[in-house]
Structures are given as structure tokens and as C-alpha cells.
Design a protein around this nucleic acid. Structure first.
Lengths: 367, 367
DNA sequence: TTGAAAGCGGTACCAA
DNA sequence: TTGGTACCGCTTTCAA
């Protein structure tokens, strides 16, 4: 096979002139094992072994190995991962399915997953479901079609069908943040019960008794746990639980609904002394409405957020929050997934990561 | 071929009993075109055509089509995308390379890219470079090995080698946020010059003359543009430019370096009346330090941020910012990329998206 | 109207 | 020590 005279030129080094019979539309083409084989007169199998570091194991002579490796380097040979994947039956990709990749909570998780996975040679494909069951289902399917080797899913929790299917297939996957209590799977989440308890207790310790919970009406296990923990914690401290103090907003309209909720909680006869927001974005929307009213925080009403934003300390007032270990979720999820991919029958692991209360002025002492 | 009696059962519908000669480790296996072919006694090629919607075009009889389609549906046939990709020479994946996927700016872009790309049948693989040239290079290569059909890159801008290579290969890609002035490529960015001008002018209009710029020392074109625009705008308004008022922080140590910078700008003989921060995170770090000092914003010093965070309106004081159209960047980038993938010789498009000044109290009137 | 067969670019088993 | 070859699952061309 003839090589073109540009071979040493930088930009063309990874292309090669192919014999006529191989030419299609382009004259220059990325080189393949086949090409190396023909150029060197060595079989594809030997080349494949050597290039995959199994030259010694296969007892290929030093000389041959040298020849192959230097040729490959010189022509900048790069294996086609689709072909390898097809052949090996694994793609070296993992899929990440979350409600919204631009939510800082999931973005942080994604960052860690990607970083960690990359170290083990995996790339990650991601998709946002927008909390829609249908999209989640489609997206999971599309990742499976792509032959991902494993999945990390923050499910909308209305999709037990797919989750069960994955489980029954013994497909490696890890649920994060939300799990299906009735389905036994790998799961990495946070300690919602402890988190909310610390939030409520912080309010109690600073003298509040009438404490509201602003949460979502969406059917998510973490949300439910937060609600339950809120009630339990109140009771534990001898505070009578009043169900009118729980406001569950619709995910789609929470931003606009927030106004009425906040008004109801802050002005009028039934006003409260403290509010726990069930998520970081609820806190932001809530605070935005509170600032429109003639009340002061924390004197008139104290706030605690479950989940943090990077700027809570810069707000007025600085917002007390229960910090969720997002990066750690990513770490653990990948850790389990990698093991699950090696051992399809890995015993189910369920991890609940501790939260951390970060006290700031929004729940400081009452005047 | 015999089919197992579980065929209608939900969880097994997408598996099939294979003849002995096909059995490997598992008895149940996803079905392939081959399997359908053998079961139905119809050739793979016909089945492939029909399942890809080219049945009529190929003049396959209604009857046959019907048979194929219903069999496929019943057994939940899903094409193996690796195989299809290998065969078609395209993977239907696009790669996204950004400095940090958990930075809200890029996370928002990513969300849009993913959503839009998905509509056109593409999945997206992402990676964060941490502004490292080496990692960027590796990651791009790894995406190419994966055979992505196109790339969207927010480059660290020290990687002209790879960018040139992509360009010379005629590989479809679009740069976002950062471009290489000396390399003609597709590019979607923002109007940094106009953005900074509006920031500086806002400060000037509210009575400030001594205005500082806190920026990064990193060699990024947008950063450079911001710096230049800052100087030009001052001159344009007859304000003498003082180079000591530009503080360029190191990307790695900006958080800790910020303290000295802020002190220098706010206390002492050379104090300024206004500060422009070149990025949203610099603003956050800066404000954090300012709050430690006995000065009030905007009376003693006014602030404007280039780039927004979702909670700037909740801060104390609410932060005036120049909002960057992150979602739109994603939109445009995908738009161009899709066209570039169809037409490899698409004329280079360079888009500069307008910013929007959002005035808040941090640069309100001086007392 | 349908099918055979040659790829796509690797991997891996088994023979030489 | 090395190579032949079947195969991974799908697409596509061309012949029947």
C-alpha cells in the first residue's frame, strides 16, 4: 500500500491514502486495523492484541510489537469505539437521566459522575426528563438502544414500569435522590428525615412553635419523607401538628402559586413563626415573595431551606439551609454502578448520605 | 424458530428464546434483525427497510410489512444503535465539551442543547475540562473515537491544535462562548463589548467615575474583550483609564485572592466608586468579601456583574447584572451544528448574542 | 416484491 | 509466534 507524502504533516497524520478499491467519496480516511494490517502485512488479530496491550500475553515478538506500535502512533490510529462496542458487547458509556441538568443539584451530581466515570474509561450521555414519566421512559429506552453499560437515574417516580424492567433484566443501574420504596434496587440518596429534623429543630431551638412547611405536591419519595419528618419532629417536641401549615405546591405552577402561600403564612390571623422550604428553589421563590411584604426575617418569620444554593450566604437575610451532599451522591452512585457492571448480582446497596445544617441569620433569634 | 410461552408476559416480551446454536451465557437475549428474519422467514434486508419506514418505497407488500411490524412490536424489537452507527458511519450522538458542567452558565446551555438535539434524534455526551488544555484535548479525542457526529465546544482557548485539526478535517463543530480569533469557525457567543459597555455606563450614569474591573488572568477571548470594552467605555465618557483599577485574578486561586483585591479597592486612599465583575462567580466571591468590610453598597461602592445567577435579586443588595442569554447559546449552537452536519461546507457562522442589563440596587444612586 | 451478500471496524477463538 | 475466520447487528446495493 502506498502512503501519501504528507504522512508526517501534522494535520494529515491520522489519515491515509487508501488503495482504490477502498475509496468512497473521500480520498482521505481515518485508518483502520484493516489498513494497518495491509500496510504491514500483519494480521488484524495480532495487531488488535498488541494495540490492546496484550502483545506479551499473546507472545508476539518484541520486533513485531514495536513495528505495530510505531506504525499506529505515526499514523495516529484510533480504534472506532462503535465497532469495538459492537464486538465486545459493551459500549463503555453510562447514561445519566435526571429531571433537569441545569438544576444546580443535579448539575453538581453530573459533574462528579462524569469525572469519576471518565477515570474508569466511561463517557456519560445525559438527558433531562422534566419530571415527565413519558420522557423518562423514552430517554431510558434510548440509552438502552445506545447500549449504555449502566444507568444512573433520578426518576420521576411514576415510572416503576421501566425501573422494574431494568431490575428484572438484571441491567446495572443505580437510582439517585429518588427511589421506589416498593422496589429493591441500588440507591443513593440523602437522609431527608434527619435533614428536615435538623431544620425544624433549629427553628424550635430558636423559639418558634408555629412552623410551616412549604413543599411540592409532586409524588416523590424524598418529598414525602420530608413531610413526614416535619410532622414527626414537631410532635416529638410537643408541638401540635396543624395540617393547614403544610402547603404543597404544584411543580408546574409553584412560582406563581407561591405568592398566595406566603401571604397566607405571613399576614393574617394564622401567621407562622417559621417556615421550612422543602427544596432550594422553593426557598428562592418564597424569599422573593416574602421580600415584597412588610415583614422582617427572622424577627417576624424565620426560614430554613432544605437544599442549598451557592449564594445563600449572600442573601438578605443569609439563609439557613440544610446542605445536601450532591457531589458525594455522584461519587457513590458511580462507585456502586461500576461494581454492579462487573457483578450483575451485586447485592443491592442503599446509601443515605448525611446532610449538614448551615446556620445563618434567616433563623436567628427573635427580637 | 420456537418462541417461548412467556412472550406476552410484560417483562420478557423483549427477550426471545434462541436456538441452541445462538445461546451464549444467557438463555434470554434481546432480539435482533436476524432473529426476526429467522422467525418470519423474511430476509434481514426487507425487515430493515420496513422497520425504517422505507417499506413502501421498497415496494414491500402491505401484508409483509404488516407481519414484520406487528412481530417487531410484539417482541419489542429495538435496533442496536452501535451496530447501526457502525454500519451507517454515523452515531447520532453529539459531544459537548465545556469547562464545567456544574457552572450554571454551562448547565443552562447544556440543558438546551440536550433538549434541542434530542428532538432531532441525537443524544449528547458531555465532559468537563476544568479549563485544562490537556483534558480538553483528551476529551475531544475520546468523543471523536466515539464517532460523535458533531461537537459543541467551549474551549479553554489554549487548544488551537485540536480546533485547527477539526477544522481541517471538515469535522462539524461549533465553538461556544470562547472562540479563537485567528481561526475561522462557527461560533456562538455573546456581545461582551456591548455587555460591558452597558455595565460601565450604568455606573457612570449613576454618578461613578472611579470604576474598577475585577476579572480573570486566564487567556480567554471573552475576558479580553470585556477588559478592552471596559477601557474603551471609560475613555468614551472622558474618564481617564487607570490600569491599577484592573485586577485580574488567577482562576485557580481567585476565591482566596479576592480578599486582598476587594480591600485594595474599597478601603485606603485609592478606593473606587464602582466595580464591574467580569463573571457571575467573581461577583459572588467579591460580594462575600465586601460584606466583611464596613462599607455599604451602593452608597460607598456600586457593583455590576457580567453574567447572572438565579438569586441576584435576593441578595443584599440586589445585584445589578448583565444577563447572558445562555439558553439561546445552546439553541443557536445546535441549530448551526445540525446544518453543519448536513452540509460539511456550510459557510462559517458567527453569532454574537445580545446581553440585557438588569438594574438593581447594587448600582443605585449614591446618597 | 424480496433476498443474498458484502461491508462497517473491531474482537476473540482456534488452528497453524 | 502469528494468522484465519467467524461474528457483533445493522445497512445498502444489486440481483433475482
Amino acid at each position: 500500500m502506498e502512503t501519501c507524502s504528507y504522512l508526517n504533516s501534522f494535520f494529515l497524520a491520522d489519515f491515509i491514502h487508501l488503495p482504490n478499491r477502498f475509496r468512497k467519496h473521500a480520498i482521505l480516511k481515518k485508518i483502520s486495523l484493516q489498513d494497518i494490517s495491509e500496510s504491514l502485512g500483519i494480521s488484524k488479530s495480532t495487531i488488535s492484541s498488541v494495540l490492546n496491550g496484550r502483545g506479551d500475553e499473546k507472545r508476539v515478538s518484541k520486533e513485531t510489537q514495536e513495528k505495530i506500535i510505531s506504525f499506529a502512533k505515526e499514523h495516529n490510529y484510533k480504534p472506532n469505539l462503535l465497532a469495538r462496542g459492537l464486538s465486545r458487547g459493551k459500549s463503555d458509556m453510562i447514561g445519566l437521566v435526571v429531571p433537569n441538568i441545569s438544576d444546580i443539584f443535579f448539575a453538581r451530581i453530573a459533574r462528579r459522575i462524569e469525572e469519576y466515570a471518565e477515570q474508569s474509561g466511561y463517557n456519560v450521555v445525559f438527558s433531562s426528563t422534566g419530571e415527565s414519566k413519558e420522557r423518562e421512559s423514552q430517554l431510558i429506552q434510548s440509552m438502552l438502544d445506545r447500549q449504555v453499560d449502566g444507568l444512573i437515574i433520578a426518576s420521576c417516580q411514576k415510572n416503576d414500569k421501566d425501573i422494574l424492567r431494568l431490575k428484572n433484566r438484571n441491567f446495572p443501574f443505580v437510582l439517585i435522590d429518588r427511589h421506589y420504596p416498593e422496589i429493591n434496587t441500588h440507591y443513593v440518596g440523602i437522609d431527608n428525615v434527619g435533614g428536615v429534623a435538623s431544620a425544624v429543630e433549629q427553628l424550635i431551638h430558636t423559639g418558634r412553635k408555629r412552623i410551616a412547611l412549604v413543599t411540592l405536591s409532586i409524588g416523590l419519595e424524598p418529598i414525602r419523607e420530608r413531610s413526614v419528618s416535619y410532622q414527626k419532629t414537631l410532635r416529638k417536641h410537643g408541638i401540635q401538628f396543624d395540617k393547614d401549615l403544610i402547603h404543597a405546591l404544584d411543580y408546574q405552577s409553584m412560582e406563581t402559586d407561591m405568592q398566595d402561600v406566603i401571604k397566607a403564612l405571613i399576614v393574617g390571623p394564622n401567621k407562622v413563626e417559621g417556615i421550612v422550604f422543602a427544596t432550594h428553589f422553593l426557598t428562592a421563590y418564597g424569599l422573593r415573595e416574602i421580600k415584597k411584604l412588610p415583614v422582617s426575617v427572622p424577627e417576624d418569620v424565620a426560614l430554613v431551606s432544605l437544599g442549598q444554593m451557592s449564594a445563600f450566604d449572600l442573601m438578605e437575610p443569609p439563609v439557613t439551609s440544610v446542605a445536601l451532599p450532591s457531589s458525594e451522591i455522584g461519587d457513590k452512585a458511580v462507585d456502586i454502578l461500576l461494581r454492579n457492571m462487573l457483578d450483575t448480582n451485586l447485592e443491592y446497596e442503599k446509601i443515605s448520605l448525611k446532610t449538614e445544617l448551615v446556620v445563618r441569620r434567616s433563623c436567628g433569634n427573635m427580637n
